[in-house]
Design a protein around this nucleic acid. Structure first.
Lengths: 149, 149
DNA sequence: TAACATTAGATGTTATAACATATATTTGTG
DNA sequence: CACAAATATATGTTATAACATCTAATGTTA
């Protein structure tokens, strides 16, 4: 649906201005879908992300620093997100012996189990994007990758 | 730049999964650019948005309800965002005489003035998207509009 | 090796987001 | 016209985001 219609704005100053608003608007919608999916499991999108990063490293340890580097929102407060996940026993945390400033993090069995449940979100994305065929999806990915330079 | 490289994830389950992550990641970056731009002016992205909606109606009044409908993030707390803007004297608010539940909102001269300063963000978008030519930007807009059905 | 700089992470604070609920007013129905 | 339903907005609460600051450990260098 035309963005102009959805936010009832007649026209934009430039295609670039429209693109910025289009991205913000579309991704807000996407974020909302994610949020709805996760809230039943009492987990946030950010926490989900951290768990996925840790699963990617499993069974190796991962430091907080590495998590920060790979998070989608790099400004975020990784330290306290990890706190929550440790509280919920989805993550095991202990001090790194070779560098005592650093922490060793590993996803627990319980963490792996909940991720398995949450992974159905990836099936849902196919439904969320049902208005686009795979060729269009690939094109979008390509353009977004190009956008970031 | 390839998303795979940026978040150091080797591959995705489907083009759709990649698209979801690509949108979240790219828009986080965009949001950050906006955020940086506005923070010098002590105004948030959401507040900026509300001001723009009100300018779109100027010199007519606009109710809170209409603002909610047009906001990019429709879940947001329009009431308190407006509060802040009234505090800062960017908005004039008074009760609607014909329906005393409703409020009449209008952007003030001070609000119009700050918007004029903030509008340079629209020039910046051209720079933010400098890696894409206008044809690509149009294509992205078209695909995003199609995505939302 | 002492002194300073850098790094990894934790913590404190304030503002905003998310969600539920409350209040006042208007609208619709028997 | 009384009364329930719907509407427009405000408010309360808890969690998270954003930013700055702090602490402990390690690296660097004169």
């Amino acid at each position: 649906m035309l963005l102009e219609k959805e936010i009832q704005q007649k026209n934009f100053k430039s295609p670039q201005q429209k693109l910025a608003i289009n991205l913000l608007y579309t991704t807000n919608w996407l974020n909302y879908q994610y949020h709805q999916h996760f809230k039943n499991h009492k987990i946030t999108v950010q926490q989900f992300n951290v768990l996925r990063i840790l699963r990617g490293q499993y069974p190796d340890y991962c430091s907080l620093k590495v998590i920060k580097e790979r998070m989608l929102d790099r400004m975020s407060d990784a330290s306290r997100i990890v706190d929550k996940l440790v509280e919920k026993k989805y993550i095991i945390r202990h001090q790194c012996p070779s560098d005592r400033r650093s922490v060793n993090l590993m996803i627990s069995d319980k963490g792996l189990a909940i991720l398995k449940d949450l992974d159905v979100i990836d099936e849902s994305t196919k439904d969320m994007f049902k208005n686009l065929n795979t060729k269009d999806v690939d094109k979008l990915n390509q353009l977004l990758d190009a956008l970031r330079g």
